[in-house]
Simulated assay, not measured.
Amino acid sequence: MNTLIEYYQHLGWALSLLVMMTFLLAGAVKGMIGLGLPTVAMGMLGLAIAPAQAAALLIIPSIVTNTWQLAAGGQLRVLIKRLWPMQLGIFVGTGLGVLWLSIEGGSWVVRALGAALLLYALSGLFLPTLRVAPSAERWLGPVCGLITGVITSATGVFVIPAVPYLQALGLNKNQLVQALGLSFSVSTLALAGGLYWRGSLGGGELNASVLALLPAMLGMWLGQWLRQRISATLFKRVFFIGMALLGAHLLISG
């Protein structure tokens, strides 16, 4: 048990409490709307700790919750056949980003994180529902995956432009949830590989990430409970406004 909590002992009780509360909130958001765990975690933790630390902490909660999301729906084989070029693009983009960029690169990474959060929030609030023609998927999917991978390697956020692209494919609700789970799973594994290659993901970080799974799962259960009781549309609007304010703060303060 000492090895599990050693990271948090070094972090201090105040930051440790922030980590636990952040993953509780991030899990609740994901349980409510099917996405948002890494976005919330990176945004809130980016206020207090280095983005590379925050990205390492989200690895296990993100893998487990995305696998849970990926397993539901029964459309996985069909979605892999349709979306594999995009997923390959994510891997390639993350790999290139790891070579070109560094999530440990200082204040510019915090500003990049803020810009990614702000862009995501504004697209969620104001971007109209788009549609991608089937003929365009062959080239647009890999391009979106490549850009998503580069942004992931620099900020730890893997929703831009992956989420708007997947939403524009005309998938039904269950297919979209599973497609998001697939994309997020690939992004998380690619990010974990990049962090490990750079030496930012070791045993201590993985142990700390395992403990962060507990509040994330509790939050996800709470979010699923809330989904039956409050308007998902209203919740999404509040979520995007909160992400916009957080992103603007990180972008300005750096």
Rank of each mutant, 00 (worst) to 15 (best):
Asn2Val: 14
Trp225Gly: 00
Trp84Glu: 03
Leu180Asn: 04
Thr148Asp: 09
Ala179Phe: 01
Ala212Ser: 15
Ser209Tyr: 14
Leu101Ala: 06
Ala154Thr: 02
Ser153His: 03
Leu169His: 03
Leu218Asn: 01
Phe184Leu: 01
Leu99Ser: 11
Lys30Pro: 02
Phe240Asn: 05
Leu140Asn: 09
Gln53Ile: 15
Ala133Val: 04
Ala244Trp: 07
Gly27Arg: 13
Leu113Cys: 08
Arg111Val: 01
Ser62His: 07
Gly93Phe: 04
Met20Val: 15
Glu6Pro: 00
Gly204Trp: 10
Val29Ile: 12
Ala168Tyr: 09
Gly202Ile: 13
Leu4Gly: 06
Gly74Tyr: 08
Gly247Met: 08
Trp84Ile: 04
Pro164Arg: 12
Leu250Lys: 01
Leu189Tyr: 03
Val186Lys: 05
Gln167Asn: 10
Tyr120Ala: 01
Leu189Thr: 12
Asn2Ile: 15
Asn174Ser: 12
Ala112Lys: 07
Ser187Phe: 07
Phe239Ser: 00
Ser183Cys: 11
Trp139His: 09
Leu125Cys: 05
Leu182Asp: 04
Leu117Gly: 03
Gly27Gln: 04
Leu17Asp: 05
Ile59Leu: 04
Trp84Arg: 02
Leu171Tyr: 12
Gly170His: 06
Met86Ser: 02
Leu79Gly: 07
Ala248Ser: 13
Leu18Cys: 13
Gly46Ala: 09
Ala192Asp: 06
Ala14Pro: 03
Gln228Ser: 09
Thr155Glu: 07
Gln178Asp: 07
Leu47Ala: 04
Ala244Ile: 10
Met20Ala: 15
Trp13Asn: 00
Leu11Phe: 08
